[in-house]
Each structure stands twice: as structure tokens, then as C-alpha cells.
Design a protein around this nucleic acid. Structure first.
Lengths: 346, 346
DNA sequence: ACGATTGGCGCAAACGATTGGGTAGAGCAT
DNA sequence: ATGCTCTACCCAATCGTTTGCGCCAATCGT
């Protein structure tokens, strides 16, 4: 006899109580402080009581339709299966949930056509804003006029076009690795630089090479090799670097996966990590410490980037002025860079 | 002079054309085959033309409100930063996109309270169904009455409560590893079994131990150790297994991360993989092949699981009868199991 | 030539919530 | 008694679509 009226709606509650839906709406939306002048304290109590007895949940479609706010944000990443990205997303999700937002997250595989298509898709879903984690340096996909009305921020990667972004200070991270290698006496070093369109790779590379140049040891161009951000890419690039007669004594791989690929290549060539070859990665993923030869890596605050990106987006949505943020990296030295041994033979 | 009327709506189009919105709606929704009897071919053409000139995109909130269908699905996982999970999600996303669905994906950290809360959240968003990748064997969170009206399917993990699920044939995978170890002559073997509440871990373990029992070599209870599904958990469990005087000659870790943790523990004890200790993992993640000692692992079709889960859910939503699906695993032998060396010393 | 189709649209009522404007009555001062 | 201010509500429009029904004219059958 109680309720066989399908999902519980504002009207359902109002009718049961002999009130008008607007009254119910105001009570349920107003501050729970009794001082909301929407209704008498007594009425408000009855409304709230019935609402949660019935398990009332406002229909978000109706609300969004009316208010033109969806509390939805779109999140774009190259691929969530990469641990770095997944960890950033955990931060995004945590903060978004805390703020009452839901996220549409999607993989674009760094393909411009897919990027555009997915931007169109989330825009079609009427998101309030987007968090873009797959930006290319040229910012091409972000020039899409469809994006005009919708605020967005970047995360992990920045562009040259000055959009607000939350990133790690990648340049500084690369610099730290260079200093570490210099301290160890390495004069012939190479970089596995990742994809040329991603600021993460290029900035880390720049930071590293700048420091070596300052030390009077500029890197020859063929010792900066671009490759995919995965183990296979790292493997190939490292194999090329290491198979020549003139081989570097240390390699900086701009992310841990490429570093692991480098390990594979070194293994194939019979090179011992930390002895014949020093190696450093970037991101200090949980694997780094567990590898048979633990990996020296730059720790970057990934989840924190995600959280900050959400807050930054929220400020943009609110129309407040915003500025990009950079988080500090930290070098974690382990055996792969061979810190325990002396300078390499000349 | 053209359009300063904010977002383009059905009404906007209708007015410009001197038609009624219902006509426009029918034309735009009907099959693009000219044989839709919604309007004359000429009118239909004009409508479609203007619609995409203006870049019309139906407002999904309005549509969902009216049709009571959101084309949204909720996706629950323990943590997306685990590569296995992320890869399954890529399959989910790919298939969902193909079918015109969007997904809300969220991390529950295998915590029952969070699971319930997130189920409530996606339900509050009025999803059409959910894909649950964090099920516990007892199916506790799935008994939530709030779930009653909403169809769902499981992926990766099954429950004992018989909900439709898409999984890998984990038992068979474990069995394959056992057979491999038996072929190599290992008689004293241990399992790092993962979390006891996840069917992936328990089924792989059961498949393995069953086979050894059939061979007349039942495993002692203390050689089946539960632990977290990550490197740290694997490291701890392996350290315990390997530090006793009576140590197993082979270890089956039910996932690759635990296997990598095992590698770390072995390294700490000075044990050489493939010589002093045989090791196999599960999932054949991209890392497995690149490790300094390449990891023997069971390959499971992860993205395919995700795709199938979407299709299964769609069938449930359509009210068709559905059955669980199991995908075949495949053993990939590499150096960590020491296949190249003879039977271990007795 | 007249009733029956039917092609081509328009009408209006939903879907569930929000929100700017009432309005009735109570309480108070003048 | 009149005018005023609150309090505590109610009214109704609106957001953008979908969809059962109805209507008008042209066409058809006989």
C-alpha cells in the first residue's frame, strides 16, 4: 500500500505530504541549516525524513536540463593502461568525487583524429569542463572551435600555446638526473626521449641536455633518441644506442617503462646494469624498486597532479583567473645508476 | 545575423525551417533511409542539412529524461592503475563507444564500503547498467537492494552467487602452470595466491593445487600464501616462503605484479631466477618479456574480456537470457621458469 | 462524384527538477 | 479599521526531447 509508483520523485514526496513540489525542492536543496526560510522547521523535518525514508535521489538529467550544469567532467588520456596515467586519474577521481563531480574518462591513443572525436563525444554529453591529459605540444586538438564554450585544463603534459596546466617540473627532473650522472663521472651519456609531441619527454630531455651542455659536454644529436613511451619503444631505442662501437656509459630514459625496455636491451647485449651501464628512469613507478636491479628514477607526484587539475578546472568553471602549476620532482637513487661504483673507465 | 541563440536545439531548427519540432525530431531520429515516413524526402533533406550545418547535437539530459534511458554504464574496478584492470577497461571503453554508450568508471580499492558507495553513486547517475570488475567471491556488495532494478554483469572476477560474468578460465590457467612445473621436475612448489576474496586468485590457485594433488604431490598449507595483488605483497609473501630452511624450488604467483615482487625477494636472498628458483606469473603483462629475467606467464585475453562484458550487459539490458563466458588462457614459457635446465637437485 | 486511404505534418502532454514571482494569513503598530 | 511586514507556502514557466494522436489535403477505388 505504501509506494508502487516507480522511482521516487520530488512530486511523489510532495503529494504524500500534501505540499507543493517547489517547497520540497527548496527544502532539500537549501542549506540543511534550520535557518533556511524555505519552510517551517517542522515541515522541513517531515520532508527530509520522508525523503530519506524513501531513498530519494534527484534525477540528474532533470536537474541538468533545468540548471544547465551537469556536474560532469570529461577526462582525456592517451592510455589508461599506463600506470602513470592511471595514477593521475586516481587523483582526478578522488578529488572529483569529493566535489560531487562524475567523470567520463577516455583513451585517445595520442591520435589526433581520436582526440577530436572524443572531445566531440564528451562535449556532446554536455560536460561542464574537461581535463586533458593527452595534449600535444602544438596544442592542435585544443584549437577545435567546438571547445570554445567549455573550460578545460591540462594535466601531466603542457602545450606551447599557454593553456593552464598542472604538470611535474619535468625540466628540473631531467636536470637532477644529469647532475647525478655528472657526479658519478659519466661523460658519454644518452637520452631515450619518448615521443617528440609530449612535453613530458621533451622537457625532461631538455633539462638533462641543458645541464650537460652547461658542464661543457653537449650530447651528440644521435644520442637523443625518440621512441614510444612503452617497454618495446625503450627496448628498440636502447638497442640502437648500445649496439654501436661507441657506446654511452649512462642512459636516461624519460619514463620507467622505457627504462625497463632498456633493461631488456642491456640484458640481450650482456651488459650489467649499474656496472657496464648506468640507467635512470622517470616517475618512480612501484615497479622500479622491485626490479632485479632496482631502478634509479625521478619521483613525481602523480595523484596530486590529478587532484590539482580538478581544483584548477573548478576555478576555471567558476570564472576565476587561474595559473598553471608545476610540482616538484625528486630523484630516488638506486642500484641501476651504479652509484656505488667509481667513475667509469675512459 | 545567422544564429545568436546559444546552443542549437530542435526548436531552433524547427523555427528556422517553419516546421514543428516533432517533425524535426522524427526526421533526425528515424532511420536515415529515405523511406522513413516522417516527412517528405525534400523536407527531410532540408532538416538534415540545417542540422549538421548548425552542428546540432541532441541534449542527452533531455533525451534521457524523456526516454528513461541514459546510454550510460557504470564500471567498477578495484584500481585502474593496475595494468590488468586498465587493459580490461580499454576493451570496455572501445566496445561501449562502438555501441554509443558512455562509461563512468571508478576505483573501489576492494573496500566494501566504497563499493557500496560507488554503486550508489552510479545508480544515482541513472546508468542503464553496470559492469563490475571488483566482485568479491561472496558477492556481498551485489546483494544491495538498490541494485535491484538495474542490470549488471561481472568481469574478470566471478562470484559464488552465480551472477553472469566474463572471466578468464583461471582454473585452467593455474593447471597449465602446474603441468609446466611438473614437466620440469619440480616436486616442492608454492603458490602466492593473491587476495582470498578474489576469484582470480583462488581459481588460479585451485587449478594449480588440484593438478599437483592429482600428481600425488599435494601442497602443504603453508605453501599457499595469500597477499595483496601488488609487488609489495608478492615481495613479502615470497620472502616468507623462501627464507625457511625448507624452500620450494618453484613458485607460482597468481599475477605478474606479485611475480615481480617475488623477483625482488629472490634477488634479496641471492637466488638466481630460473636456476635456484623457477617462477611463473599470470596475465603476461607487457613487462613480463622485458624483465632482466623474462617472466613465464599465463596470457589471458584482457581487452577481449572487457568487450564481451559490454556485449553481455547489453543483452541483459535488452532482457535477453545470458550466460557467463570464460576465455581461454595460454601459457607463455620464458626464462624465469628455467625451462632450459634439467630437473632440480633433490 | 463520393467515401476511404494515406502521406505529411502539427498538437500537446509528458519526463523531473528549479526558480522568479505571487498570495493568504498572522502579527503588529498606528 | 487600515496598512505594513513577515512567514510559509503555492503557481507556473521552463529546460530540450519524444511520442501517441489528430487533422488536412491529395489521391485512389468504384
Amino acid at each position: 500500500m505504501a509506494g508502487e509508483s516507480g522511482p521516487v520523485t520530488l512530486r511523489g514526496i510532495a503529494e504524500r505530504l500534501g505540499l507543493h513540489v517547489s517547497t520540497v525542492s527548496r527544502v532539500l536543496n537549501g542549506p540543511s541549516g534550520e535557518q533556511g526560510r524555505a519552510a517551517s522547521g517542522e515541515t522541513a523535518r517531515r520532508i527530509r525524513e520522508l525523503a530519506d525514508e524513501l531513498g530519494y535521489r534527484p534525477n540528474p538529467h532533470a536537474t541538468s536540463l533545468r540548471t544547465r550544469r551537469s556536474n560532469l567532467v570529461g577526462v582525456l588520456f592517451p592510455r589508461l593502461s599506463e600506470i602513470v596515467v592511471a595514477t593521475i586519474y586516481e587523483g582526478v577521481e578522488e578529488e572529483a568525487t569529493r566535489r560531487g563531480l562524475s567523470t567520463f574518462v577516455t583513451n585517445t591513443h595520442d591520435d589526433p583524429a581520436t582526440q577530436r572525436e572524443r572531445i566531440g563525444m564528451v562535449l556532446g554529453r554536455r560536460v561542464d569542463g574537461l581535463i586533458i591529459g593527452d595534449a600535444h605540444l602544438d596544442g592542435a586538438a585544443l584549437a577545435d572551435p567546438a571547445l570554445d564554450g567549455t573550460p578545460f585544463v591540462l594535466v601531466n603534459r603542457r602545450t606551447d600555446t599557454g593553456h593552464p596546466a598542472v604538470t611535474c617540473d619535468d625540466r628540473l627532473g631531467g636536470r637532477r638526473v644529469a647532475e647525478h650522472f655528472l657526479d658519478l663521472g659519466h661523460r658519454r651519456v644518452a637520452v631515450i626521449a619518448g615521443e617528440p609531441f609530449a612535453s613530458t619527454g621533451t622537457d625532461r630531455t631538455t633539462g638533462f641536455t641543458d645541464r650537460y651542455r652547461e658542464a661543457g659536454l653537449p650530447l651528440p644529436a644521435h644520442w637523443v633518441r625518440h621512441c614510444g613511451f612503452d617497454t618495446a619503444g625503450g627496448h628498440r631505442a636502447a638497442a640502437e644506442l648500445l649496439s654501436g662501437p661507441d657506446r654511452p656509459t649512462a642512459i636516461f630514459a624519460v619514463n620507467d617503462l622505457a627504462a625497463i625496455g632498456t633493461m631488456g636491451a642491456a640484458r640481450d647485449l650482456g651488459l650489467r646494469l649499474g656496472e657496464d651501464l648506468a640507467l635512470a628512469g622517470f616517475n618512480d613507478t612501484p615497479l622500479a624498486a622491485e626490479l632485479p636491479v632496482p631502478l634509479t628514477s625521478v619521483r613525481s607526484p602523480m595523484a596530486e597532479q590529478g587532484r590539482r587539475a580538478v581544483r584548477l578546472l573548478l576555478r576555471r568553471i567558476a570564472g576565476e583567473p587561474v595559473a598553471s602549476e608545476m610540482l616538484g620532482p625528486e630523484l630516488v637513487v638506486r642500484a641501476s645508476s651504479g652509484a656505488q661504483i667509481g667513475p667509469p673507465p675512459r
